[in-house]
Computed example of a mutant assay.
Amino acid sequence: MTRTFIFLFLMIFQVTDLYAQSVKPAWYRYYDSRGIPNISTNVTPNHIRYGYEALDQNMQVIQRNRAYNSEADIKQAPQRAALAKKNEADLKLKKAYSNSQVALQKRNDALLYIKKQIAFQQEQLKQLQNDRIYFKRQQLEHLRKVETVPVALKNKIDYNQKNIEVKKELIVSLHTQYDNTQLYYDKIIARLKLLE
Rank of each mutant, 00 (worst) to 15 (best):
Q122P: 01
K92F: 06
H142W: 03
K193V: 13
L143E: 14
L8I: 08
Y31L: 05
V172W: 02
I171C: 11
L8Q: 04
E71F: 08
L112M: 08
N46D: 15
H175L: 04
K154V: 04
I12T: 14
V23R: 00
Q161P: 03
K126L: 02
R191K: 12
L170I: 09
K116Y: 10
F120A: 07
K136T: 13
W27Y: 15
K162R: 13
P45M: 05
H47Q: 11
N160C: 08
D109Y: 07
R29Y: 10
N155I: 05
I36W: 13
P45S: 15
N42W: 05
T44R: 02
Y178M: 14
F120C: 07
A89N: 07
K168H: 07
N180G: 03
L93C: 00
S98L: 04
L194M: 10
E71R: 14
Q124V: 12
K116P: 02
T41E: 14
K75T: 06
E53L: 14
V15K: 13
L125D: 03
L93Y: 08
Y52A: 01
A81F: 08
H175D: 07
Q177M: 13
A77Y: 11
V61Y: 07
T44V: 00
R64L: 06
S98P: 09
L18I: 07
L112S: 13
A84I: 06
L91Y: 01
S22F: 06
L183Y: 07
L55E: 01
Q21V: 03
Q129Y: 08
A82K: 15
S22P: 00
R49G: 03
L192I: 02
R29M: 11
Y31V: 00
F7A: 10
N180W: 03
R80N: 03
I189K: 01
K136C: 01
E123N: 09
E196W: 01
S40P: 06
Y113K: 14
Q57C: 03
A110H: 04
H175C: 02
M59F: 14
A119Q: 11
Q161S: 15
Q161R: 15
K86D: 04
A67T: 08
D17R: 03
I157S: 08
Y50H: 11
P37M: 00
D158H: 01
L93D: 01
K168N: 10
S100F: 03
N163D: 12
Q161C: 10
L128H: 12
I48A: 07
I36F: 05
L104M: 06
N87S: 06
N42T: 12
E196G: 10
R49L: 11
D17S: 03
A26I: 07
Q182Y: 01
K193L: 14
F135P: 01
L143S: 09
V102H: 11
V151N: 14
M59R: 10
K94A: 05
E53H: 00
S22Q: 12
R80C: 02
T44M: 08
E71S: 02
P45V: 02
K193G: 05
T176V: 12
R191V: 09
N99R: 02
E147S: 15
K193E: 11
V151Y: 15
Q139V: 04
K85P: 09
Y28L: 08
F13D: 04
V23M: 00
